[in-house]
Design a protein around this nucleic acid. Structure first.
Lengths: 247, 247
DNA sequence: AATGGTATAATTGCATACAATCATACAAGA
DNA sequence: TCTTGTATGATTGTATGCAATTATACCATT
């Protein structure tokens, strides 16, 4: 279970391993590689102009993140992420965001509180104007601040991780005007609860906020949202029971 | 965020990297290394009779697990795990075990159900006899089966991860006779709820089960339980007095 | 004595060479 | 035809060498 790594960004930015790791992560989440596709060390290395060593180290990390599966002496295979995975993550996040909101109520600093207030205020403006990019960014930041405010390194890291995982999906769904405003309203309510020191309420609201976000996502077609260029032939993404559709 | 890695055990068993990874993980969790202690690639490598390469790969994984922090071009430093971390993990687990129990109610297979029944039956026997080792093992297995039964790879992996993290602590606390029996009772109740198809009840019970386990652990003294015979000398990284007691 | 700069040592980052393992193709025998 | 053994190629696992970076010690300058 991963934990906090404050200096991680530094590593990832300036080391070859970090670059390879981020690139592959991005590519896998973006669906560049098909599910079960084999990743070969030399091929990836040549593609990025590095030797096998940093690629291998990146592989080990991706394995731990569950994005690939390494079979000893055989190869690394993309696991991808299924619709069910996304649903599960949202359900888990629902619980954890609730806990986070509760803890944040108890530990939030004045500075963090101020940033959140500014955040929802600005977000409302952009929501009305239809600035979806800014909306998405503010939305991300709202949650991030709450993660930091809960003052639990463990929970913070866990949530950031999940958050990053479904980021692309969420970004798309925010482009839905209705949801943008609704989400902003929910943020405001959560913030109000935190300000009022009502941890229980904050927990309930944050909980519900996730469920709503998920339901909205499903309503708008998860599959389509994830494959921008890929035309969908009339089949609703959420259907297909039992089948693991990679998104 | 890490995911399922079915074949992981294989890797860990037969590869040098896996052995190094497990050994270091074990040692760090057992408190062999002091907090902020620097881990040197060559030293670890010589100690285990391997070259730097597998050590480095293990380091990258440990970094992602948050057990060490790697500062580029400088070194790897032990992060350890604080008492607060343990508490946080139990709180998080409380929620997730609840969710897991609920999902397990919906998806458990007859085989898994049977294993759980056998498990609690056997555990009762060993609890009465005072066979704490077997108890601990059965306890682990009970939770593991439930993780598998929830049929969510994501949740399963997350919980297994957390579980492993606090395993040693938990093992110690089970040696407490009272708790052993009580825990067995709670397992029985959870199982009954699952059998009865009452997901809500199973969730509540599993939830409570974690809280109880945690409270018992605290009552018995978390810190002592974790430092069996600490006899490390020297000027460990201290540097930051009075904060984050590593267990 | 305090400060700053430079040389040296220690350590990590990366590349590469070699060994071990696995997959495939193909041929020999039943 | 099917099985089995073997050879070959591809790929990963590990060790090691070199470059880059950082820490340390020492000396010079003020």
């Amino acid at each position: 279970m991963e934990r906090y790594n404050v200096k991680q960004e530094v590593t990832d930015k300036y080391s070859l391993r970090g670059r390879v790791f981020n690139k592959l992560r991005e590519d896998i989440l973006n669906g560049k590689y098909a599910e079960n596709e084999e990743l070969k060390e030399v091929a990836i290395g040549e593609e990025m102009g590095v030797s096998r060593t940093p690629v291998r180290e990146a592989f080990r990390q991706l394995e731990l993140e569950g994005l690939i599966q390494i079979i000893p002496n055989k190869g690394a295979y993309v696991t991808g992420i299924t619709e069910k995975d996304v649903m599960d993550i949202y359900m888990i996040r629902s619980l954890l965001e609730g806990l986070c909101a509760k803890w944040a109520t108890e530990h939030i600093t004045p500075e963090q509180l101020e940033e959140m207030e500014e955040n929802v205020y600005l977000a409302r403006f952009h929501a009305q104007k239809g600035h979806w990019d800014q909306m998405a960014q503010l939305d991300n930041r709202f949650h991030e601040v709450m993660y930091e405010a809960c003052s639990s390194k463990i929970l913070e890291h866990e949530l950031k991780d999940f958050h990053a995982y479904v980021l692309r999906v969420r970004k798309k769904t925010l482009s839905n005007g209705e949801r943008g405003l609704k989400s902003n309203e929910e943020h405001t309510q959560i913030l109000e609860a935190i300000k009022a020191g009502d941890g229980e309420l904050a927990q309930t609201l944050a909980n519900r906020h996730m469920i709503n976000a998920y339901e909205n996502m499903v309503k708008n077609g998860l599959y389509e949202a994830y494959h921008p260029g890929q035309e969908r032939d009339g089949e609703e993404g959420a259907g297909c029971p039992g089948e693991k559709k990679s998104i």
